[in-house]
C-alpha cells in the first residue's frame, strides 16, 4: 500500500514544502534545507501559500478537515517539479496518508500525482539526485533517530549513508532503535502519559550511548524528545539531518558561514 514510486528527476528546480513545524518553530531547518539543495545546484522555490500537509487532522480522524487542507496543499504545489520536504512524516502524508483519505474522492488522481513527486529530503538527495557521499566536516558522535514514518521507505538508509560519509561523523546505534519516540502528533497530547513513557525509554537508550548530538529527519520527534529532556533539566542537543549536512559544508568553507 505504501506508495513510494517516484517520478524520475528531470530538471534541477524543486518546490520546498517547509512543513508547519519549521514554519512555526524550526526556521533554521528549513533554511538549512534550502542551503544544501542550492549547494547541490538545485533551484529552490518556496510557494508562499503553503500551510500544513493536513496530517494532524488525518491522524486525529477528522478526514473532512484534513481533506480540506490537502486540497489546499495540492493547489499550492501545482506544477511538475519535485516537492522536497525536510520531514519523513509530512512526505508520507503526501504519498500515503492523503491517498488513503481520498480513496473515494473524485480528485484522488491529483492527490496521487502530488504524492508521486513528493520526496523526503534525504531520499531526494541520495536517491533522487544520486548524491551518495557528503563533503565537508562535522566532528560529532551522532545518534540518528529513525522516524517511524520512514519505515519501509528509502529515507533512513539515505540519511545513514549521507551522515556516515561525512568526515568526523561517528554514528552510534542505540537500543531499541525500532521503537517509536512517543510523539505521534495529537497522540502526544491525548495520551500524554503513554507518550512521555515512550519518550523516557527512548531518551534512556540515547543517553546510554552518550552522543554529542541527536539527529533526525523529522523535527516532530526532536521537539518531543528535546522538550522532554529540557523539562527534566537534562537538555540534549538535537539537530535535523539538513542542519548537519549544512554545517558540514560550512565547517569546510564550502558554503558561506
Amino acid at each position: 500500500m505504501l506508495n513510494t514510486e517516484r517520478k524520475p528527476i528531470t530538471g534541477k528546480r524543486v518546490q520546498l514544502m517547509a512543513t508547519c513545524l519549521c514554519d512555526a518553530f524550526y526556521d533554521d531547518v528549513a533554511a538549512a534545507t534550502v542551503q544544501i539543495l542550492e549547494y547541490l545546484g538545485v533551484e529552490v522555490v518556496f510557494p508562499e501559500g503553503q500551510t500544513c500537509c493536513g496530517q494532524p487532522a488525518f491522524n486525529g480522524g477528522d478526514w473532512v478537515a484534513s481533506r480540506k487542507v490537502v486540497r489546499h496543499t495540492v493547489k499550492t504545489f501545482a506544477g511538475d517539479e519535485p516537492v522536497v520536504v525536510p520531514s519523513g512524516s509530512c512526505a508520507a502524508m503526501m504519498f500515503h496518508g492523503a491517498v488513503l483519505e481520498f480513496e473515494k474522492e473524485n480528485d484522488l488522481g491529483e492527490v496521487e500525482a502530488l504524492g508521486r513527486r513528493t520526496w523526503e529530503l534525504g531520499d531526494f538527495i541520495f536517491n533522487g539526485l544520486g548524491v551518495k557521499t557528503w563533503p565537508g566536516r562535522f566532528e560529532a558522535t551522532v545518534a540518528l533517530h529513525r522516524a517511524c514514518h520512514t519505515r519501509g521507505t528509502k529515507s533512513s538508509p539515505a540519511a545513514t549513508a549521507l551522515l556516515s560519509s561525512i568526515e568526523g561523523v561517528k554514528i552510534v546505534e542505540f537500543g531499541e532503535g525500532e521503537q517509536c519516540c512517543g510523539f505521534g502528533g495529537t497522540f502526544s497530547v491525548t495520551f500524554p502519559n503513554i507518550s512521555a513513557g515512550m519518550g523516557a525509554l527512548k531518551l534512556e537508550h540515547i543517553r546510554a550511548v552518550k552522543p554529542d548530538v541527536l539527529v533526525s529527519g523529522d523535527m516532530s520527534c526532536m521537539m518531543h524528545l528535546g522538550g522532554m529532556a529540557q523539562q527534566e533539566g537534562k537538555p540534549i542537543k538535537t539537530m535535523h539531518v539538513a542542519q548537519v549536512l549544512r554545517d558540514a559544508l560550512k565547517n569546510a568553507g564550502l558554503i558561506k558561514p
Binding site: D23, A24, F25, A31, P192, S195, G227
Partner: peptide, 23 residues
C-alpha cells in the same frame, strides 16, 4: 492540548514567519 504538552515537555520558542522572512 498546550497544557498536556507542557505537562511533559518544554515548548520550543515560537519563531513563526522567521523562515519566510529569511527566504
Amino acid at each position: 492540548a498546550l497544557r498536556a504538552w507542557e505537562a511533559k515537555r518544554a515548548l520550543p520558542a515560537w519563531r513563526g514567519g522567521e523562515f519566510r522572512a529569511w527566504m
